[in-house]
Nucleic acid binder design. Sequence first.
RNA 1: GGGCGCGUAGCUCAGUUGGUUAGAGCACCUCGUUUACACCGAGGGGGUCCGGGGUUCGAGUCCCUGUGCGCCCACCA
Length: 914
Amino acid sequence: MSQSEKTGGVARPAPRAQVRAIDPSKLPKHFDADEISARWDRFWQDEGVYHYDESRGRSETFVVDTPPPTASGSLHIGHVFSYTQADVVVRYKRMTGMNIFYPMGWDDNGLPTERRVQNYYHIRCDPNTPYEAGLRFEQASADTRKKPARLVSRPNFIEACFDLIKEDEQAFSVLWHRLGVSVDWRHEYQTIDARCRRVSQFSFLDLWQKGHVYTSDAPTMWDVDFQCAVAQAEVEDRQVPSAFHQLEFAVEGEPAARIVIATTRPELLPACVGVTAHPDDERYKSFFGKRAVSPLFRAPVPIFPSELADPEKGTGILMVCTFGDQTDVQWWRTEGLALRQIIGNEGRLRPVDFGKAPFASLDVPRANAAYAEIAGKNVKQAQARIVELLRDPSASATGNGAPLVREPEPIQHSVKFFEKGDRPLELLTTRQWFCRLLDRKADLIAKGEEVEWHPAHMRTRFRDWTENLAIDWCLSRQRYFGVPIPVWYPLDANGRPDYDHPIVAAAEALPVDPTTDVPKGHSEAQRGKPGGFVGDPDIFDTWFTSSLTPQISSHWGTDAERHARLFPADVRPQGHDIIRTWAFYTIAKAMLHEDEIPWRHALISGWILDPERKKMSKSKGNVMTPLPLIETYTADAARYWAASARLGADTAFDENVWKIGKRLVTKLFNAAKFVLSQPGEIAPITNELDRAFALQLRNLVGNATRNFDAYQYAHALQETETFFWTRFTDTYLELTKARARGEVAGASAVDPAASGSAVAALRLGLSVLVRLFAPILPFITEEIWSWAYSQEAAELDPSAPAAQRSVHRAAWPNSSDFQGIEAPAHAESFDVAIAALAAINKAKADGAVSMGREVVALTLRATAPTLEIFAGVRSDVLAAARVSGCEVEATAGFGAGEFAIKAIEFAERSIEGA
RNA sequence: GGGCGCGUAGCUCAGUUGGUUAGAGCACCUCGUUUACACCGAGGGGGUCCGGGGUUCGAGUCCCUGUGCGCCCACCA
């Protein structure tokens, strides 16, 4: 019994392999891979070979949580890599009899689409521009791009997004068909479509009812270019040049005292709200409780002790600004410091008045004059200007000369960036929606432990990320193309929104757009009016929706029966770079909603690196597009390449592997042509060599099945490939060729039993190997299957749908393939035959004669037990080696199955062996 | 600073729980065209398994240590 039969797969009888011979002259000499793949893709789609069957139960269903690609990205060789790896696993499961649910989604909501649309059409969204019905755009020309981008309304912008993603999704779809990704196209969705918007908003409602989401006006990481909040998961560190600036502060009431503070952000000096040092630091101990006075702005701020201050860093004392980094936020909170926000949403210094709270100065006119020098500038410009000002002795708070006490000292340090951004993130206080996660870290980790990760060490990444989570999930984004947050806020008598009592949309009303839809019990006339309401203008983080892909497919919230059937899913294939986002949020959502895990297995694929082992990226210009390679090497070869890499292994791109894949495809074509064109009639597999071959084939099936069950498809492929070349085409085919045709030396008539046994074993071998290769090489295997084997299915059950004729719906090789074949007398018979043939071949190579040269006299040496086994396969070996006269000599001193040539004589020429 | 992974032939990679003389493909060299296949076949050369130490009858495999590379995270006055 095979592994899959034991582990839940549905064992089905194997084809009988009693297929009739085909006429090879009807097949092309070389095959046309493009024609084959187009033809079979059509067949698979027309016949619904990959359709999910709703009538079958959960236990025999295998549910895939397909990654929806970002359609606005470009086609990348990495797509071929990871989607093929998942497809290989799925195709295997399908052949074990599982009912496959394999949907296809497109992740088109979000920033990448907006950016692409902006660039492609050279437009910008401006919510103040009026909507123009019927407005369509064309790809911007180089000339157009030189002019400022056209401003369009939000609805027009969204229409443009829909237009472009349609084109992009088409391009991906073409590649998927070309690659033979066996998704069920009837289950297609876009993360921006109405149904996904509904699921996404329903998720928010559920989280709101369960108390997991809240809104808060708090310091949040903010991208000044996108003018949008970002979550911790979207942040990355980058090394950038910076400089330490040492600034001298005065201490109030202590004219002799001075404090020198090192900062990399002197432009935040006007936002300084405190000064701190380590409580044990003797240099500053005496100042705690007093007030420091900043240079230039003469702002008095409290000096307080903090364990978080490191005496070794900089000068050991630092200024707290609102906000330079997360620690500033912490100090601001614990010390109850003032909020002096000087950076505006667009990254420029806002106008402020040092005469008014929360700002303060001992010399208001001077402070305002200094600030006027930097107001309106961006962070970089402001820094340059403020450094100049700090070189002026009159700016000093102590009267000791220039506050910049020495030249800035250049350093490299890492700064937080939005992963898609170009300028460092700022911490700005803005109102955002959050999802509580910090209080559930332990539960999240426990859920991560329930998931089986492949490879297992990827679990560590999930755990590490979860353990180190520092802030709740910021859900809201100040963008346009995404799922709207389904809430309104009541307006008080003064027209101010009451954020503490949001009006959340009703479930039956979803999806809603609160900027155009009206909450229950209100009218459009009340929008924006005192006593009325206002819609939340924000949209969700794109991960808020894509973290629901299992629930999107299961129709959670609208179809409880289907949801029960499809959730949780069985597998989630994805890349390791998005464990902290996609995998993490998906696990979080499943837990918060239903205390479930979203899927049992996470299949983590690696990355394609360029030949120098560098990550492929657009900016490096080393990205490869897949279609030209597929055209050169065939889609099966592309899949061979992808399936040669283990899960999780980052792999250097090597075109050579594609070449080998193509060679394998060609060899399969030729071997199949040969095997199926043998004219002999089938007979029971009784010959010793054939039985020994069948035994090895059976072992191969067991190993391949075990490997596939463990998601080790690369091992299965490698072993199957090795067997195919070294046990089938190079050896078994050669050894049985003559007997299959009835060309046995010394026999005047064909022995139908001997010939039929060989023909049957050849057909069985091909049938099994084609099915073992089918998950990886779907096109060539389907082609071969169609020549003979598929007709058998049709004959067995003429009423069966055509889809049943596909190799991809055929039974995965199992014990029933080998039913009725007796074990060989010696398990080693096949190996002994190969060894004997190899020994004779070597003698021919040494003698520099062709493999076809007849051997008129041969003396073989081996141990007596080896020779006994040899006797059972002797006639096949001699026929394959074209030996007409053979003697054997039992000799001690050889290993089991080892042969030596004592003497060999070729026709018309001879040499003497040792 | 913490964590994870990797280091095996010129190249890309296998090598299960320790067990014959460490493998494959490509590349290289020699030979061979008889119809399944030149998108071929046969044969051959090539390795200090990153270094050091240890456990063991026995280590590519296990332990310790060093080193190089990649990635993730943290720090970031």
